[in-house]
Nucleic acid binder design. Sequence first.
RNA 1: GGAGAGAUGGCUGAGUUGGUCGAAGGCGCUCGCCUGGAAAGCGAGUACACUGGGAUAACUGGUGUCGAGGGUUCGAAUCCCUCUCUCUCCGCCA
Length: 422
Amino acid sequence: MLDLKFVRSNPDAVKEALEKRGAKVNLDEFLALEEQRRKTLAQVESLKNKRNTVSEEVGRLKRSGGDAAALVEEMRQVNQDIKELETKLAKLEEEMENSLYEIPNIPHASVPAGKDETDNQVARTWGEPPKFSFVPQAHWDIGEKLNILDFERGARVTGARFTFYKGLGSRLERALINFMLDTHSGKGYVEVFPPFMVHRHSMVGTGQLPKFEEDAFKVAGTEYFLIPTAEVPVTNMYREEILESDKLPIYHCAYSACFRAEAGAAGRDTRGLIRQHQFNKVELVKFVKPENSYEELEKLTADAEAILQALGLPYRVMALCSGDMGFSSAKTYDLEVWLPSFNTYREISSCSNFEDFQARRAGIKFRPAPKAKPEFVHTLNGSGLAIGRTVAAILENFQQEDGSVVIPPALRPYMGGLEVIR
RNA sequence: GGAGAGAUGGCUGAGUUGGUCGAAGGCGCUCGCCUGGAAAGCGAGUACACUGGGAUAACUGGUGUCGAGGGUUCGAAUCCCUCUCUCUCCGCCA
């Protein structure tokens, strides 16, 4: 959420930013609403002021045995007026809040302007896509032949986009989770194991709601949502808190299952592990002081990259353009891993600086100095990494002509020393 | 699931026959005095949001907030209702 006062005093800057993003928001209508709100608020407050002063007077009169009947009668009428105005005010505030919650973040100055993913820029590439002396297979074929992935039974038990991992496949998934958590923990990220369901306010806090409710799974009979990423519970860990300045920066890493409805993705990536309703992910989350947040974004991205490098997976880093960024983000780098079956790079991590956009929604502040006025922290997060896509990348990049798959050396300690899945 | 107790400021803890309570006291913290320095002691200050004035300052006016939401009342931390959470006991359970 943007700062209301900033929007009010810099309408042109906001309009320009929204245009750069390709967002459709009627800002003039919003500003007119906001002006009306303040006018009504002033009226209500002055009436309440009157009520407070007179009530005090009534108290004084009664204690000294005077007659306050006339004043009481007058206040009855004032209360009527207050009630009416408050109803009006509540309506205005609700309307305004709804619009404010649907305005996306302002892109950082360094974000390339652009309309969609074709305008994203390659920041750097690492590693070389493998050259095969045979026709490489897709990971779903490799996985089924090795009997470590079972898509058919996943669909039979639950539905499309659900999968069983079996045997060494399941072991590989678990190994990757542990490898990533251990690696990040060693770099100062404090591991947390979050709830996999959250209430609505948390979803609003990180920006999934109210605008994108159709993307989320809501648990019937409850007010809980299945988390689409650990970002939601972990960022909201500090909601409605004022953090001590010396606690910052806070780094967390967290494993969680992630649940996404994938509304609007019907027919896309229907085979394999790339787009599942449930997948595992290790997430990195940071709470930092505003002046450091862009430096922290570079470090966060590097920490996610370190996993790909340790596994020996070729990838590239994309600086997302203004039109392709997520709703809450001010700047995003996507990490894309090479997938031979697609003959291209596919997203495996997304690292973003949200500046104070999420912090304002979730009420996460810090005190810059003792006694100083609290300010919003900057929040960042990035996948480190999506596990299912990492499995796909390993199977495809390290496949052998005989259908076996070589396990990256960094992962072998987590696989009981196993070198090859065959 | 059943029975009971509770939720107050950074912490602790008063206040529940409604009225001058944003809220005593203590601790902590900040600044000052004292000291060669420190402790102790003394003095002052110490919530957040919205909103008005002011320069988008210092400062200052107002409104709201005592778990959340509603109600009664001229007036609610105090009375009533609903919800949430915490604790204790019983039951159940991985």
